[in-house]
C-alpha cells in the first residue's frame, strides 16, 4: 500500500509552458511514443518468458519426459520439437509462429495450441471482465462514500471492511462462498462450467461466485486507493474555486474532484490487473472452471512446456496491453501527462 501511495505522490505533473501547443499533435505524439514502448515491452517480455522456460532447464525434452527417459527418446523428442536447433532460431520460430497466429503443437494433447487456448479464453475472459466490473463498481462506490464521510462512522466501517478484505485470501473467500451458497443454501453450483451452449443464464450462473470471490477481494485495495485519491483531490485549491463559483457539492464532486482522482485510480487498476489475472488462475482452480488457469496446471502436470509458454506469454501480453490502454486513458483525461514522455 505504501508503494502504491508513493507511486501516486511521484506522479506530480511537469509544470511547463509551451506556446506552440495544439491538442491533436500532442496526443498523437504521445500515442506514437507509447505504442513504440508497448512493442518494446512485449518483445522484452517474450524474451523473458522464452528465456525462463526454454533456456533455464537446459533440456526441455528431458523435463518433458522425466528423469527416467533414455537418452535416445530424449534426443528423438528434442529433434521433433526442434530443440536441437540454436536458441535464436528457436526463439524466432516461436515468435514468428505466435505472430502468425500459430501457437505450435501441444505435446500432450497432440493438437494445435491456438484453438486450445481460444476455448479456455471463452471462460477466463468473461470471468476476468465480470470480476473487474464488480471490483470497479464496489470500490468506486465505497471509496467515494468513505471519502465524503472522512472520519465518520461510515468511513470507519468501510475502512475496517477493506482491511479485512486485504487480509482474506481470494481462494479462501471463494471456498467460503461455496460453503455458504453451494453447500449450505444450494443456490449456485459449487464448481464446473456447463459451457456457453448451455445458455447464457446457466453459464453466467457458474461464473458469478468465482467473479464475486475475485472481484470483492480486489475491491479492498481499490477502495482504499479511491478514498485516498479523492481525499487528496478534495483538499486541492481548485475544489474551493469550484465551490466559489456556486457549484453544489455534488456537481463539484462529479465535475472537478472525481476526474482528477481518476488518473491515480486508473493507474492502480492497471497494476491490479496483473493480480486479477493471477487471482483468476487460483479461483478457476477452486471452482474447477475449464479456463486458462486449468490449462496451465494440466500442462505443468503433463510437462507440456510449449503450452505453458504460450499461456504465460498471453497473460503477460494482456497485462501489458491493459496498462498501455490505462496510460492512454490517463493521458486523454489529464493534458499534463501527454507531455511526460516527450
Amino acid at each position: 500500500m505504501l508503494f502504491i501511495r508513493l507511486e501516486m505522490a511521484g506522479a506530480s505533473p511537469a509544470m511547463t509552458m509551451d506556446l506552440n501547443w495544439t491538442p491533436t499533435d500532442e496526443m498523437g505524439l504521445y500515442l506514437f511514443q507509447r505504442f513504440i514502448l508497448l512493442l518494446a515491452t512485449l518483445a522484452f517480455a517474450s524474451i523473458v518468458v522464452f528465456g525462463v522456460l526454454e533456456i533455464l532447464p537446459g533440456n526441455a525434452a528431458q523435463v518433458m519426459l522425466g528423469a527416467s527417459a533414455t537418452p535416445e527418446t530424449v534426443a528423438a523428442l528434442a529433434h521433433k520439437l526442434g530443440l536441437d536447433q540454436g536458441v535464436i532460431v528457436r526463439y524466432a520460430a516461436w515468435i514468428g509462429g505466435v505472430l502468425r497466429g500459430d501457437f505450435g503443437l501441444s505435446y500432450a494433447y497432440d493438437s494445435p495450441i491456438g484453438p486450445l487456448i481460444a476455448e479456455r479464453l471463452a471462460v477466463s475472459a468473461p470471468l476476468a471482465l465480470l470480476a473487474m466490473l464488480i471490483t470497479t463498481a464496489v470500490a468506486l462506490a465505497a471509496g467515494v462514500f468513505a471519502a465524503q464521510r472522512r472520519g465518520k462512522s461510515g468511513d470507519v466501517a468501510v475502512m475496517a471492511a477493506s482491511q479485512i478484505g486485504l487480509a482474506v485470501p481470494n481462494f479462501w473467500f471463494a471456498i467460503l462462498l461455496v460453503l455458504v451458497f453451494a453447500v449450505h443454501w444450494r443456490l449456485a453450483p459449487s464448481g464446473g462450467f456447463p459451457g456457453w451452449e448451455a445458455g447464457l443464464g446457466r453459464a453466467l450462473g457458474a461464473l458469478i461466485l468465482p467473479a464475486l470471490a475475485l472481484g470483492l477481494v480486489q475491491a479492498a485495495v481499490l477502495t482504499r486507493v479511491t478514498r485516498s485519491a479523492l481525499l487528496d483531490v478534495l483538499n486541492e485549491d481548485f475544489i474551493r474555486t469550484a465551490r466559489a463559483k456556486g457549484l453544489s457539492r455534488r456537481a463539484t464532486l462529479w465535475r472537478h474532484a472525481l476526474p482528477n482522482a481518476l488518473t491515480p485510480i486508473l493507474t492502480i487498476m492497471g497494476l491490479q490487473f496483473a493480480n486479477l489475472i493471477a487471482g483468476a488462475i487460483v479461483v478457476e482452480y477452486v471452482f474447477t472452471l475449464p479456463g486458462l488457469g486449468r490449462l496451465v496446471f494440466q500442462s505443468i502436470a503433463n510437462r507440456d512446456l510449449l503450452v505453458v509458454e504460450d499461456c504465460v506469454m498471453l497473460l503477460v501480453a494482456i497485462v501489458i496491453g491493459v496498462n498501455f490502454f490505462v496510460d492512454i486513458a490517463c493521458a486523454a483525461i489529464d493534458p499534463r501527462l501527454r507531455r511526460r514522455a516527450a
Binding site: F238, T241, R243, N260, I333, P335
Partner: peptide
C-alpha cells in the same frame, strides 16, 4: 448561498497555480 456565490460575490484565491482545475 450557492445562488450568490460566483454571481453576486466572487472570490480570487491566493495560489493561481493550484486554484485552477488542471484537467479543464
Amino acid at each position: 448561498m450557492r445562488d450568490l456565490r460566483g454571481d453576486r460575490v466572487a472570490m480570487i484565491f491566493q495560489e493561481p497555480m493550484t486554484a485552477l482545475n488542471p484537467l479543464h
